[in-house]
Amino acid sequence: MNIESKGSLVVVGTGITVSGQMTLITESLLKTADIVLSVVTESALVNLQMINSNVVCLRHLYEQGKSRALTYQKMTQRIVDEVKTGKKVVAAFYGHPGVFVNPSHEAIKQLKEEGYDAEMLPGISAEDCLVADLGLDPAHYGCQSYEATQFLLRQYTLDPHMMQIIWQIGSIADFTHNKHRTSHPGLTQLRNELLKYFSPEHTIIVYEASTIPIAAPRIEYLELKDLAAVIPKPITTLVIPSKGLPDFDMKSMAELDLTPALFEQKLFG
């Protein structure tokens, strides 16, 4: 194949809000793409259409009750097929294109294996918004982050000294893209699991990033024992602040010729 006519893929994120969180390089790539394939909200789609006249929305591939795995395969296939026709393709996803997104990673993997240029650019994710809105630095105590269903169904080891971020608490054990869900029994199970590590009175935060410029994010502080009463959306995130820093590891300290006092002195002057 002639290199000039060889298709390529750049995967980008549109951010969490309707338009303002798109990076400058993403906007530049969107402008010059032969085709933009999108999986974004309706309002973000309008923004994409204002940037490029050839935008194809792939959200119709979602079907109520259908396996997400099948939907993701179809999205991946469409992206790969467009590149193989020789087009300069930009695939635009909501938030960060590599976070909670399967077809972006899969399309890049398949195309690279076949010798095509394919890359991902970072976007603003819900986690980025969370850090900014809640004022919680994930580096301060360390941070563990899980998807809610995975957290419950796998034997993870939770470290309560770290901040915990549990995503999609409104979609626990929902594998069929059910947007009309009304009961959330998984929250009781989640609360019971967390009670193994935290007191019933430990503060938790229910969080949803703001999606439009004039609305505030959802930030609700409550006690862990009340988690089951929360009415979540599929995008709702649960944040459990740290119990505080763990004790020093004296063995590691000694190996580095440090003591707690010396460490504090070096750290804070």
């Binding site: 974004v40 909200t41 309706e42 909670f100 947007k179 999606t211 439009i212």
Partner: peptide, 12 residues
């Protein structure tokens, strides 16, 4: 704006 349309997007 279907801002809450994010609810129906990728859930992996």
């Amino acid at each position: 704006c279907e801002a809450e349309g994010a609810d129906t997007l990728e859930i992996s």
